Amino acid sequence: MSLQYIFDLEATMLSIEALNVFVAVIDSGSFSAAAERLGQTTSAVSRTVSRLEAQLGVTLLVRTTRRLDLTEEGDWFLGRARRLLAELQETEDLMAARLSQPAGLVRVNAATPVLNHMLAPLVPAFLEAFPLVRLELVGAETVVDLIEERADVAIRMGPLADSTLNARRLGSSRIRLLAAPDYLRRHGEPSKVQDLAQHRLLGFTEPASLNLWPLAADGAQGWPVQPAVAASSGETIRHLALAGTGIACLADFLAREDVAARRLVPILEQATLPWSQPVWAVFYKQGALAPRVGALVQFLADRLRAATLDE
Rank of each mutant, 00 (worst) to 15 (best):
R98E: 06
L119Q: 04
F130P: 02
D152Y: 05
P274V: 02
I267N: 07
L9G: 09
V297K: 03
R185M: 14
A120G: 05
A33D: 15
S209K: 09
R263H: 12
D195N: 12
A167P: 06
L178Q: 05
L202V: 06
L70I: 07
L68Q: 03
D75N: 14
Q286T: 15
R47H: 12
G104Q: 11
D145R: 01
R134T: 00
L273E: 03
A96H: 01
E257G: 03
Y5G: 14
L160H: 07
I155C: 05
V23T: 04
D27F: 07
S233I: 08
A44P: 00
L146N: 12
V21Y: 08
G79Q: 04
L300E: 09
L264K: 05
F204Q: 09
P224F: 00
V293R: 05
P274F: 02
L19N: 08
L250W: 03
E128S: 13
L94G: 10
V293F: 00
F283M: 11
A241V: 00
T64K: 14
A11I: 00
A306I: 10
G188Y: 09
Q55K: 14
A230F: 02
A24N: 04
L135V: 00
H239K: 10
D27T: 01
L300Y: 04
C249T: 12
S232H: 08
L212T: 11
F7M: 08
S30F: 06
Q55P: 00
L14T: 11
V144Y: 00
L242G: 05
A81F: 02
H199F: 15
K192Y: 10
I237W: 03
T245H: 12
L146M: 05
L70A: 06
L19C: 04
V106D: 09
R176T: 09
T164R: 13
L178K: 02
L68V: 09
R66H: 11
G74S: 09
T71K: 03
A217W: 12
F31H: 11
V282I: 06
E206Q: 14
R107M: 03
R238T: 07
P113W: 06
E206S: 15
I247N: 13
A281G: 04
S43K: 11
R238H: 11
L115D: 01
V293M: 01
L85M: 02
L119N: 06
H117C: 09
L309Q: 14
A216N: 07
